[in-house]
Amino acid sequence: MSVQVNSMNRGAVRSDLLMAGFDDAVQDAQKVFRKVLKAMSEPGTILTADLTDKTPGALNKSSWEIALTLFDADTKIWLSPTLAGDDVVVSNLRFHCQCPMVSEPAEADFALALADELPELKTLNWGNSEYPDQSTTLIVQVEAITNQVQDSDEGWCLTGPGIETERGLSAKGLPYSFRLDLVNSRKRFPLGVDCVFCADDQLVALPRSTEIKPSDNEDGIRNTTQQEAN
């Protein structure tokens, strides 16, 4: 018997935990890909991904569908501790995507995390000046996402490519430190991390090209125009 070289994450997938993925793998993945593309090109625009009935473990619909669409044998995946410890999640991701799992966020092409288990932003791969595209894409499951930011102390005002003037966005449950790091990460553009926030069947993207300003007075950065945006 030949020696195995594909042994990145051996250990059995639990076949009793496997559930169906997309009903139509090709068409459904194309639909979700189109959503992610639109979300990335129009940052802050909330889209719905609702093609599956059941999701494995703690994954919500939109993050599960993004995984089915974007993860494959050539993408290294980092999962936040709760997800990584859940056989249902790991088995189904490995079965449907064949994605190798990594234990260091810096090695990951995609990091999939719960909002309260986010890795420090600096521990992810920000790409390099030759290949800024080789950075980690961070997918975060949050409680809720909304474009209504008036009464939120977690609101952002987004500007930049794909946004005509500005757009409000609030992703509930992100730690303060992460929000601060994300704002500061823009200084290193074109290096950085592209984010997708997933709440139930909704998703919204925040690529590194989008400028973020807190919509309240948090951190002393005052945004004066956000009120008109909504």
Binding site: L18, M19, A20, G21, D23, A25, F95
Partner: peptide, 8 residues
């Protein structure tokens, strides 16, 4: 039977 993965 139920499909976990349709023929692909």
């Amino acid at each position: 039977y139920q499909f976990i993965r349709k023929p692909e």
